[in-house]
Simulated scan of single mutants.
Amino acid sequence: MRKVLIIGIGAGNPDYLTVQAIEALNEADVFFIPDKGSDKAALRSLREEICARFIRQPGYRFVPIAVPVRAKSDDYKADVADWHAAIEARYTALLQSELAEGETGAFLVWGDPALYDSTLRIIQAIDAKAPFPFAYTVIPGITSVQALAAQHRIALNRIGEPVHVTTGRKLGEALPEGADTVVMLDGEQAFKRLIGQGLEIYWGAYLGTPEEILISGPLDEVAEEIDRRRREARAANGWIMDTYLLRKSDSKPKSDAPPKSDAPPKSYAPPKCGAP
């Protein structure tokens, strides 16, 4: 039987890989690597660098996947459904043609496969109707949410209080009362619509990598700086991954706030692949 591993590889720093993830890498014969074009070539190359660093035996191979582009209309969910269907068809064909009986294939997922990533859903859909049997296993990873809290040296939750995790698209609908809010996938900087509400923001981009940017402080004071730094970084690198936490400003003593820093963790060795 074919076997598929869905491996969470962390938020960008190879040191974030768990022992379980490293062992899973060493089980795989084939790595299915998404190819999203030249702008995101660094993400593809970093996956390859992770394999080169942690896999102990030769013989594995890479199979590139040309990822379809998602349409953008007024019906977001319909666009995503069509996009996932196209990816599912592509994955199905590759699993059948590139993964032989008895072999193990792997998908390397940024962060954790269970949080705002659709690889697991797509593999489940394939499993439900594929003309060939296969087994799949999920290996959790360190998310950008965890990396954000660690780099800012903060706890995500206040004592006995909830944490709300959402997207930039949903943030504008309502800010939950009494919950600190973690925001992911915010391409439009929805936090700017919340200026004037007495919020603190802890923002981070390229977490754990040499390009890491950290900014924190009262939202009213740092929103424009975040917007500017984000636009500059995206223009320079061709892509950006950022995450942030919003909370009421009285929830954390100012004396406990970490200094702003753009310095990467000292343990990270920059990839040799020419990543920006």
Score class of each variant (00 low, 15 high):
Gln96Cys: 09
Ile87His: 11
Thr119Gly: 03
Asp112Lys: 00
Tyr116Asn: 04
Ala114Gln: 11
His84Asn: 14
Glu101Gln: 01
Ala81Ser: 12
Ala78Met: 14
Ala114Asn: 13
Tyr76Glu: 10
Ala106Lys: 01
Asp79Lys: 09
Pro113Cys: 06
Leu99Asp: 02
Ser118Asn: 10
Asp112Gly: 04
Leu108Ser: 07
Leu99Gln: 05
His84Met: 14
Ser97Arg: 13
Gly111Met: 00
Leu94Thr: 03
Ala93Gln: 14
His84Arg: 15
Ser118Ile: 08
Asp117Arg: 06
Glu88Phe: 03
Gly105Lys: 03
Pro113Met: 08
Phe107Leu: 12
Asp117Ile: 01
Glu98Pro: 02
Ala106Trp: 00
Glu103Asn: 04
Asp74Asn: 13
Asp112Glu: 00
Phe107His: 02
Tyr91Ile: 08
Trp110Thr: 02
Ala89Leu: 12
Glu88Trp: 07
Gln96Tyr: 09
Gln96Ser: 13
Trp83Ala: 05
Pro113Val: 08
Gly102Cys: 09
Ser97Cys: 07
Ala86Lys: 13
Lys77Asn: 15
Asp75Ala: 15
Leu115Ser: 02
Ala114Arg: 15
Arg90Lys: 12
Thr119Asn: 04
Trp83Pro: 02
Ala106Ser: 02
Val80Trp: 10
Leu95Pro: 08
Glu98Lys: 10
Asp75Cys: 13
Asp82Val: 11
Thr92Ile: 00
Ser97Lys: 10
Ala78Pro: 07
Asp112Pro: 00
Glu88Cys: 13
Ala93Glu: 15
Leu108Thr: 07
Glu88Thr: 15
Tyr76Trp: 12
Ala85Ile: 06
Pro113Leu: 06
Glu88Gln: 15
Ala106Cys: 00
Trp83Asn: 10
Leu95Arg: 06
Glu98Arg: 14
Leu108His: 07
